[in-house]
Amino acid sequence: MVTCKDFLRELGEYLDESTDPELRAELDRHINECPNCWVVLDTTKKTINIYKGLEAQPLPERLRARLMEAVAKKIGSASNGHDC
């Protein structure tokens, strides 16, 4: 019998789909019968997905200029050093 405590302990593996099929079936059975664990599973999935779905924002123009300038300087000094 899978308890809520067992379910929470296995939740990470369950979410990453790395539990073996037998255990997975037992965990599935548990969430069908336990509203608490079903809600925790559902809201944890949503938590992960909301972060995954958020696109990284463009860099502030000033920051991008600073980065490109530093890189250009680095590349310039590297190629000067080789002299081939």
């Binding site: 929470l8 939740l11 990470g12 979410l15 925790v40 809201t43 944890t44 949503k46 938590t47 992960i48 909301i50 972060y51």
Partner: peptide, 9 residues
């Protein structure tokens, strides 16, 4: 994950 879930919930 659980701590973030808690806060977002």
């Amino acid at each position: 994950r659980l701590q973030l879930r808690e806060k977002l919930t």
